[in-house]
Design a protein around this nucleic acid. Structure first.
Lengths: 232, 232
DNA sequence: CGAGCGGTTGAGGCATGTCAAGAGTTGTGG
DNA sequence: CCACAACTCTTGACATGCCTCAACCGCTCG
């Protein structure tokens, strides 16, 4: 986009650092700022009838709740920091005004929204088509491939949160990890060790239409699968 | 958008009528055409490991697989006609070229994508936060409110498909509908009769952040909740 | 009429959630 | 530095939601 426009957005926005566990956004509130994670990580979650579930984890550098800002609609998800996190906030009205003025920016927004959309569809497919055991196996395998195929790595998030993200209870995740030891992967604390990749792959049956394309060497995704995110 | 640009898109595209049950799109195929349902209805579904689930039903006039066209990426979902359906096909390359040339068109695409994104997020929240009984109750209530709050209406889709959409088996849906008779709604064949709206509402606990905003009188949505759809 | 299909119903089993208790870890304040 | 509190994680026992399999009904359509 035009440098002048870019600068205009920057001057209208501001950057702030938040402590861990802080609620940045409450679902249902009007969308007043586009958020961009510069450093740290943010959990997006849904709430309903005293229940809660993790929808995604946003890691640098990504936007979130872009869709709500564009539509000038209430946030569909809440957001809280998982750690000390630096965030840039751009007034939603400025964002809306800007992609009307700057065609390049509009194209970037289109690209981001399309990517986000596909992310959620993938996630929804995983939830509906796989059982919890398969989701866990796929997740562990996917994280390994994101880390350039290493056989050992550490989980990027707490198990409690991972369980919620995968649509199961912490107890169930714990048990599932235990039984998965017979299928090519061992998890000790936050440490994941893939002992038999072929076997784990056979169980997880990874699919690029669900788990995403094979990562290219240049990308550096670390978090939960839909780490690129842009709506809410 | 500019009339000239609109006409250009029209001349590049063509309209075709398909019989019921025809597979329009196979998931994983490259996105070559943007599809627009002019008449009839289309099911979007996901497949994995010999399992299948309905993701959405698209009704006139809506686009689908917009996101795949934009990203020039493989379709994440398959699509098949549910009835005799008239569809307009626009070459994906023309769509991509057009929103680079025409700012108004780009804005329309942004709006459509943002709406689609929010649709899927709602759907995902419903799947993760509600159990099957609550999903069924919400769905029945939602359809009633889309039909201007009438107490009686007919289901817009087959129960078999509805079950898949709601993430359950046909048997389970059948049983659930039976037990729901004690909670303010009766379903005979495809006919839905809400006998005690307050009671059904108490059970469904409808939420505009999941079920969508209260419909305005001018809109005429009929199908499954995310009838507006635009990605894949 | 008979095949095919959607829908319903029943029986039984597995997967997952719930409740409860305890081990291990982390962070805090005395 | 230690003691305590709070929290995550784990494990067990139990309950239940949901699926699977199978049979049957009713309708549609050739």
């Amino acid at each position: 986009m035009a440098q002048a426009h870019f600068d205009a957005l920057l001057t209208a926005s501001y950057v702030q650092t938040f402590p861990p566990g802080l609620e940045l956004i409450r679902q249902g509130d009007p969308a007043d700022f586009l958020h961009i994670v510069l450093d740290g990580s943010v959990e997006l979650f849904g709430q309903w009838a005293d229940r809660e579930c993790t929808m995604a984890v946003v890691q640098p550098v990504s936007t979130f709740i872009l869709a709500a800002c564009i539509r000038d609609a209430p946030y569909l998800m809440g957001a809280r920091t998982l750690e000390r996190t630096r965030i840039m906030l751009i007034p939603a009205s400025d964002v809306r005004a800007m992609f009307r003025r700057d065609g390049e920016f509009a194209l970037a927004v289109i690209d981001e929204l399309a990517a986000s959309y596909r992310s959620v569809v993938r996630s929804a497919k995983s939830m509906k088509l796989r059982n919890s055991r398969e989701r866990v196996a796929s997740y562990l395998l996917r994280q390994s491939s994101l880390a350039e195929g290493v056989a050992s790595y550490t989980l990027p998030v707490e198990k409690r949160l991972l369980a919620s993200y995968l649509g199961m209870t912490p107890e169930n995740l714990s048990r599932t990890l235990r039984t998965l030891e017979g299928d090519g992967v061992k998890v000790i604390g936050a440490r994941v060790i893939i002992t038999d990749r072929a076997r784990l792959t056979a169980l997880a049956r990874p699919d690029r239409l669900i788990d995403g394309p094979d990562p290219v060497a240049t990308s550096a995704g670390v978090g939960l699968p839909p780490s690129r995110d842009g709506g809410g």
